[in-house]
Design a protein around this nucleic acid. Structure first.
Lengths: 110, 110
DNA sequence: TCAGTTACAAACCAGTAGGTTAGTGGCGTG
DNA sequence: CACGCCACTAACCTACTGGTTTGTAACTGA
């Protein structure tokens, strides 16, 4: 309590932190979506074109999940044709340095 | 070719790197296994005790996968009762700093 | 004999991730 | 009319992940 970290408490906290972080980064397309939004805000259709191998359904699903996690922000415009934009939230931006490190890790194992 | 990175080549490389790295870190128990081996070499039974919530089958499965990926090394001893030890490979050790960063990322989203 | 130690494997199952297909709606153009 | 633009949704499907249960083997001690 007085500055002493109890091993079990620390391990449990680690666990929650790791679990939550993995929720953000794991998934076939997640990081690629983030990569494409790192540069700038984009509309759904732009992401579709940048990631041609993702199914429409999955892309939307992923975007929705990432918005719910607080990684992305979605802005809808009252326009026709429909216009929706996605951008990294501030928290989402914090994931970018991790992305670089993930790539470095990939180098060791490829 | 002459120092000019072609966008598509770079994106494809990123993709493979990210895909491979995610193979290493994603999975319900993977990072926790690595966490417990960060400190020292351990036997299977020790890991079981340290990770009581993983099923035997899954723990073995994960250890096997991590060995195949080159993250862990497994050493069998010709003893009874059977004695098998797992330790981080050199490449596996390179994952540890990422683990710290992953925890930091978790803080943003918890 | 049984129960304990150790480290696995096989068979089966439920839930989930990623995918295909068909559909929605409003507007503009040929 | 059909097709294009845009951004979704629902229904259905397959493969995979994590899990439960049952089993293997050798040795030791009560």
């Amino acid at each position: 309590m007085n500055g002493i970290k109890q091993p079990e408490l620390m391990v449990e906290e680690d666990r929650l932190l790791i679990k939550k972080a993995l929720e953000v980064v794991c998934g076939k397309w997640r990081l690629f979506i983030l990569l494409h939004l790192a540069e700038k805000t984009r509309r759904y259709s732009e992401l579709r074109r940048l990631l041609p191998d993702v199914s429409e359904k999955v892309l939307i699903q992923e975007l929705k999940a990432l918005v719910q996690l607080g990684v992305l922000e979605k802005e809808s415009f009252n326009e026709v044709p429909p216009r929706v934009e996605y951008r990294l939230s501030d928290r989402g931006k914090a994931v970018m340095p991790l992305l670089l490190q993930i790539k470095e890790i990939g180098r060791y194992f490829l």
